[in-house]
């Protein structure tokens, strides 16, 4: 039955192809693939143990997956869902960032206090850089010159020169930094601090802090407002911030640094990804095991999609 229906389904689905959201399920060792058009899970793909960070190559022909407890980064063919090979990643890879050259993966090795740089073509480790305890957040500047690792227990952002692969600056942030992103064409670095409950904005030129954003969710104790993942809208004027066990996503004006809105989502929200046209935002809710779909324009949650156990990372496949 399924086979017979396939060609028909394809002809209907093709014109409406709106892309997919790939979600890693930390405690199921799987990826749930969500169709952006139907807002349903279309595939569940097995991965290595404890998949967390997920990222696509520039041309979307490969997807890289941090299989933390397998101590490897897996490379998957997104069409077939097959694991093509593993990359040497160092121990316990948690998050990573792909250099604009599409070749160098910067991987945070949470258990080892190092950042590993891997060439995805030669599949070799180019460098290991000593950083603080429990490195997690990773970002590479748009011009490819600077890589950032944030370390959770050391409470720092480490600024790495991608040419020399040496740390050239360290900036203290609030407790348990989790995620880092460059913004404003690379002029700003944003870092979230989970236990500190804040987002810090740095001037990349001087590494000086230019803003610190605090959150207050009505009816939720401040201790439970824990910023983790965040994403910028296409125009970079707005940033959506996952606030962990407060079960809310904050909407922040990226120019005035003011919090404009809070959106109720599932329990312990971790990370998020936009639909390809950036009209919808998909958040991973770790404890409730689902994904909340937010309509970006109206800033409202429009649907909840059940995925695997403890969804963590999210990535867009157009």
């Amino acid at each position: 039955m399924k086979l017979a229906a396939l060609p028909l389904a394809l002809t209907i689905a093709l014109p409406a192809w709106a892309g997919e959201i790939w979600v890693t399920n930390e405690k199921d060792d799987t990826i749930s693939v969500i169709d952006v058009d139907t807002l349903e899970v279309t595939r569940t793909l097995p991965t290595g143990e404890r998949p967390r960070g997920i990222i696509f190559s520039k041309d979307y022909s490969r997807v890289y997956i941090c299989a933390s407890d397998s101590d490897t980064v897996q490379v998957m063919d997104p069409v077939s869902g097959e694991i093509l090979h593993d990359l040497p990643s160092g121990e316990d890879p948690e998050q990573f960032a792909l250099h604009p050259n599409d070749r160098h993966l910067y991987i945070a090795n949470e258990d080892d206090a190092v950042t590993t740089v891997v060439d995805v073509e030669t599949r070799t480790v180019l460098a290991q850089i000593n950083v603080g305890i429990e490195p997690e957040g990773m970002a590479v500047s748009p011009d490819g010159k600077v890589a950032i690792t944030t370390s959770e227990t050391t409470n720092m952002a480490h600024w790495i020169d991608t040419e020399t692969r040496q740390i050239f600056a360290n900036t203290l942030v609030d407790s348990r930094p989790r995620h880092a992103e460059f913004a404003a064409e690379g002029r700003e670095l944003w870092v979230s601090s989970e236990i500190g409950g804040t987002l810090a904005v740095f001037d990349t030129e001087t590494q000086a802090q230019k803003a610190r954003i605090e959150f207050a969710v009505k009816g939720v104790h401040p201790d439970r407002v824990q910023p983790v993942g965040f994403e910028f809208t296409a125009d970079e004027k707005t940033v959506f911030v996952a606030l962990g066990p407060s079960n809310h996503v904050a909407v922040v004006n990226a120019e005035t640094f003011e919090v404009e809105d809070y959106i109720l989502v599932g329990r312990r929200v971790w990370h998020m990804a936009f639909s390809p046209d950036k009209s919808m935002l998909f958040t991973t809710n770790g404890v409730s095991g689902d994904v909340t779909v937010i309509d970006v324009a109206s800033r409202e949650a429009i649907k909840t999609i059940k995925v695997g156990r403890f969804p963590w990372g999210a990535a867009t496949r157009p």
Partner: peptide, 13 residues
């Protein structure tokens, strides 16, 4: 929202 000028916490390289 808190803006720059939080001197004590604003330690940089």
């Amino acid at each position: 929202a808190l803006f720059a000028g939080l001197g004590a916490m604003c330690l940089t390289a």
